[in-house]
Design a protein around this nucleic acid. Structure first.
Length: 646
RNA sequence: GGGCCGAUAGCUCAGUCGGUAGAGCAACUGGCUUUUAACCAGUGGGUCGCAGGUUCGAGUCCUGCUCGGCUCACCA
């Protein structure tokens, strides 16, 4: 008679019949019912794309048994105590930070003296807590008592569960009592539970909670990663960041200075909030400009294209907020910033993700030099507040933010690193500093470098350490490329007649020779105007733009300039870009008529800058890949989890 | 997009010359009332990324594909 009833009608009985029965009998009765359902083949409990194996099956069975024992397996809340600070719920971290001072000191591997533990326990004298967290270790059960650690994602706190002391809490209305030990034995590594009990220090000297009542909160149906090794597979870590975060918080074997994924992203958050605070302290207003635009402008990049159904027009994900922010300068804002995502439809590698976070800010009446000072102050302050110091270890590099950032013009940088690179190559000794003032010679040197090839270029820098034999051979190679370049001089001279080509070649020389060597924060200034279509020319040299880029650890981290505010000149620069576009450069900018119209109302002189937040976070968290500082970086879709792809 | 490397149990990884698929952790069963990666005894767990090919025989050799890593080109 009983078995023929469904669960709903059983629940209905609970008010009347259940109290008459001892609870554990009632629970057994539920288990019998569920077993009946299983053997009857009512197997609709599994989720199709969640893999079934011995471990998931065991967890599923535990879940069903828990339902039988406590009713609702996914209760809606658990109220935690507030003994650390009134008005604030006690997290595990808060409890540990407040009470771990009671742990008696003992030499590594030894137990503290019993008297010290006794004393600590008297001082703790029945401090009751109600805390919740994820079961962070496989339970260590010793017959009639057990130890388990709970984690709140940051810290872990041990709980002690004694068979004779623990009471279980039903999750059904009324929250009656169930067998606590039976409940405990249905728990798996990874489940969420809430416990009530009192603090004490164990014989080994660890702060723990002696559990009086135990409540089930949520099930981990999937097995957790190895407690010692965590997850090493970068694909799982990036695709399933939740698993990465869990594994990082539960992993036992960790280096002293190793950041958990959680700590990486908390630091990211801190860096961003410090930058916001710094800007707001200096009078900047945060604004939000369109991410979906009908024109992709403000930078040299290919956009993502989409389509608006109702309007029937193409739209582009923005590649930069720049032109919108400058429209706001026209409108009267003197200091604005935007901190948000840009989207660029280009290659993906360890420093590029299709969507990335950019901070852009604009300062009316200031020029590029004032902006460099401001940027430097902001970054130094951010590093200090985020890390507590200004010396950053990035891989093998030591980066010092406390010293004034070096400032070099692009030409100075090229000259310096050319000299260092080719100091042991007599065949190119005729190159002197004057060469870099001459467009023809710049195109010549760029051609030479391309001809020489990257492998030889890398060897050249080691020339000092090479044996005589190899150095001789290398010099022959350099000499050969040099002579060969001379036979193409007619072509390079012709190329030099086009200023934008000279500009590109100078930038190429800079990129190959100088950029990788800019380890300490360094401002590179005086960019060729031809590759800076939105920036103002220098008053001293009309061919040079008042523009800078900041390099740290060989990475470009910021890009700023005195903003071009002459609408006529901006119109012509756009036209030049259009010409380049017609020649096949699909990253050249498009004409933005509305922007020209805005400038025509008058824009004050201003400086602006963009800072690549992801790269800056990489530096401050010692990550070598941008995918490690973006919670959910772009990856190809996973085929096996998506049934529609078969 | 090109080149190089990789994919084996839930996780971390071995797998020799082409000859029966392995370990640790995790899981399951039993024991253990203050443990510390708890311990002791036992048991189960595999589409060796996918699809072909060579071979008497393929985790292993060959080809194609998928996904990932590094790197080059492009870009911030």
């Amino acid at each position: 008679m009983v078995v023929s009833h469904d669960q709903e009608s059983l629940s209905g009985w609970e008010g009347g019949l259940a109290p008459a029965l001892p609870h554990h009998l009632f629970a057994l009765f539920y288990i019998a019912l569920y077993n009946q359902r299983f053997t009857a083949g009512a197997q609709n409990l599994s989720i199709p794309f969640i893999e079934e194996n011995d471990q998931t099956r065991a967890r599923q069975e535990h879940l069903e048994a828990l339902r039988a024992l406590v009713g609702n397996a996914y209760p809606n809340k658990f109220e935690r105590s507030q003994i650390v600070e009134m008005g604030k719920e006690d997290t595990i971290t808060a409890i540990v930070e407040k009470f771990r001072a009671f742990e008696p000191k003992a030499p590594e591997g030894e137990r503290p003296p019993a008297e010290a533990i006794e004393l600590a326990n008297q001082q703790l004298s029945d401090k009751s807590v109600r805390i919740a967290g994820r079961i962070a270790t496989p339970p260590r059960v010793m017959g009639k008592a057990a130890f388990v650690h709970l984690s709140d994602g940051v810290m872990r706190l041990q709980i002690y569960v004694k068979r004779t002391d623990v009471k279980g809490v039903s999750n059904d209305a009324g929250g009656g009592e169930v067998d606590g030990w039976e409940l405990f034995n249905l728990l798996d590594h990874g489940d969420f539970i809430g416990v009530e009990g009192y603090l004490f220090i164990t014989k080994t000297g660890e702060l723990s909670v002696h559990v009086r009542t135990l409540q089930f909160l949520a099930k981990a149906l999937l097995p957790l990663p190895d407690k010692m090794h965590g997850i090493n597979d970068p694909e799982i870590r990036q695709r399933q960041r939740y698993a990465d975060l869990i594994a990082g918080s539960l992993k036992l074997d960790r280096e002293e200075d190793e950041l958990t994924p959680r700590e990486v992203f908390e630091r990211r958050s801190k860096i961003i909030s410090e930058m916001r605070r710094f800007l707001e302290d200096h009078g900047y207003v945060e604004v939000e400009t369109p991410m979906l635009t009908s024109k992709a402008t403000g930078a040299a990049a290919r956009p993502f294209e989409t389509y608006h159904n109702a309007l029937g027009i193409p739209l582009y994900a923005r590649i930069a907020p720049e032109l919108y922010l400058k429209r706001l300068l026209v409108g009267g804002f003197e200091k604005v910033y935007e901190l948000n995502r840009n989207f660029r439809n280009e290659g993906i590698d360890r420093t590029h993700n299709p969507e990335f976070t950019m901070l852009e800010f604009y300062w009316a009446y200031a020029d590029v030099n004032q902006m460099m000072d401001f940027c430097e102050a902001m970054l130094r302050a951010t590093v200090f507040t985020a890390l507590g110091h200004t010396h950053v270890k990035y891989g093998d590099l030591d980066i010092d933010f406390s010293q004034p950032f070096e400032r070099l013009t692009m030409k100075e940088a090229v000259i310096r690193w050319w000299r260092i690179r080719f100091q042991y190559c007599p065949s190119v000794a005729e190159v002197n500093d004057q060469w870099f003032e001459d467009g023809k010679r710049i195109t010549f040197l760029a051609y030479f470098l391309k001809l020489l090839g990257l492998e030889s270029l890398d060897l050249v820098i080691e020339a000092a350490f090479l044996g005589d034999e190899r150095r001789k051979k290398l010099n022959e190679e350099v000499s050969f490329s040099w002579d060969r370049t001379k036979t193409y001089q007619g072509k390079t001279d012709e190329r030099a007649q086009q200023p934008s080509f000279v500009a590109e070649d100078l930038a190429y020389l800079f990129g190959e020779l100088a950029e990788p060597n800019l380890v300490q924060p360094t401002f590179i200034t005086d960019f060729p105007k031809a590759i800076s279509p939105l920036s103002k020319a220098s008053p001293a040299d009309p061919a040079v733009a008042e523009r800078f880029e900041l390099f740290i650890a060989g990475m470009e981290c910021a890009n700023g300039f005195s903003e071009l505010n002459d609408p006529r000149e901006q119109y012509e620069r756009f036209n030049d870009q259009m010409t380049q576009r017609e020649r096949g450069d699909d990253e050249a900018m498009v004409m933005d008529e509305d922007y020209i119209r805005a400038l025509s109302y008058g824009m004050p002189p201003a400086a602006g800058v963009g800072i690549g937040i992801d790269r800056f976070v990489m530096l401050l968290t010692n990550r070598q890949s941008i995918r490690d500082v973006i919670l959910f970086p772009h990856l190809r879709p996973e085929r096996r989890i998506n049934p529609s792809e078969g």
